[in-house]
């Protein structure tokens, strides 16, 4: 087996007395689509931010793309893409300007930025919108754009925090097509979602309850293990006992 691109060992984050992420341990293999599930408040975003080098863990160990989450946050940042739960491209810049800006920040050459933005706009069918302000786009398009910008610099891993929250079913399907394309190019996908049909698209999933990982396996194996007909059922059995769920 290849070296995992994400390795965690008892990774923990506390906010005061509150343990948001509690000793989670797991590995993610290169090229995998890893589903990171859990009820609201389970600690998914918190865990993801630690893995992205945005937040220093309180305890435990983790390596992302081979780099340490305590000491090598800037190296990690060079090797990952991140799409936060809250839309965070610049709404007062156009589609092209956003692509340009983030391409530039990641140090892509001008020629690179040009070919990539053309390809990106073509793939998303945004030809008519390229010069429109991002704020004026519908949510589904924003999310697809945000994902595409997140992988512009061809990171090893991309972290997606509820990328399809509030997005219609057709666009969700398109979004997952984009994810598959990226995975096909060798980018490891680390994705959180509240949609169980999306969970089925993942190679493996973990389910977090109140800061802890309660189950981790392929969707198939989990259904068998919990004797459930669907992922919905598995999730329900596990998350039912959650105390944090709002």
């Amino acid at each position: 087996m290849a070296t995992p691109v994400i390795q965690t060992d008892k990774l923990t984050k506390r906010f005061g007395d509150f343990v948001a992420t509690n000793e989670i341990t797991f590995d993610v293999q290169p090229g995998e689509i890893f589903g990171f599930l859990g009820a609201n408040g389970a600690g998914k975003t918190t865990a993801m931010r630690m893995l992205c080098g945005l937040s220093i863990p309180s305890a435990g160990q983790a390596r992302v793309a081979g780099f340490d989450v305590y000491k090598q946050t800037e190296q990690i940042k060079r090797n990952i893409g991140y799409m936060s739960q809250k839309f965070s491209l610049y709404e007062d810049l156009t589609v092209l300007e956003n692509i340009n800006f983030f391409g530039g920040i990641y140090g892509l050459s001008n020629a690179d930025i040009k070919t990539k933005s053309e390809a990106l706009i073509g793939r998303l069918g945004l030809q008519g919108e390229a010069k429109k302000l991002v704020g004026s786009l519908p949510l589904g398009w924003k999310q697809k754009l945000s994902f595409s910008v997140g992988i512009l610099h061809q990171p090893k891993i991309v972290f997606l925090d509820e990328p399809t929250g509030g997005v219609d079913p057709v666009t969700r399907r398109q979004f997952w097509n984009l994810i598959y394309e990226a995975a096909h190019e060798g980018i490891t996908i680390f994705v959180t979602t509240h949609y169980m049909d999306e969970a089925e698209y993942c190679n493996r999933i973990s389910i977090m309850v109140d800061g802890k990982i309660q189950a981790l396996d392929t969707p198939q194996a989990l259904k068998q293990k919990f004797n459930a007909a669907s992922m919905d059922d598995v999730f329900y059995q596990l998350a039912r006992g959650a105390k944090r769920s709002e």
Binding site: E74, K77, R78, S84, K86, L89, E91, F102, I105
Partner: peptide, 13 residues
């Protein structure tokens, strides 16, 4: 406030 700094902070800038 609008969250764009998160996207900046996750880059090697």
């Amino acid at each position: 406030e609008i969250g764009t700094i998160e996207q900046i902070n996750v880059t090697p800038l």
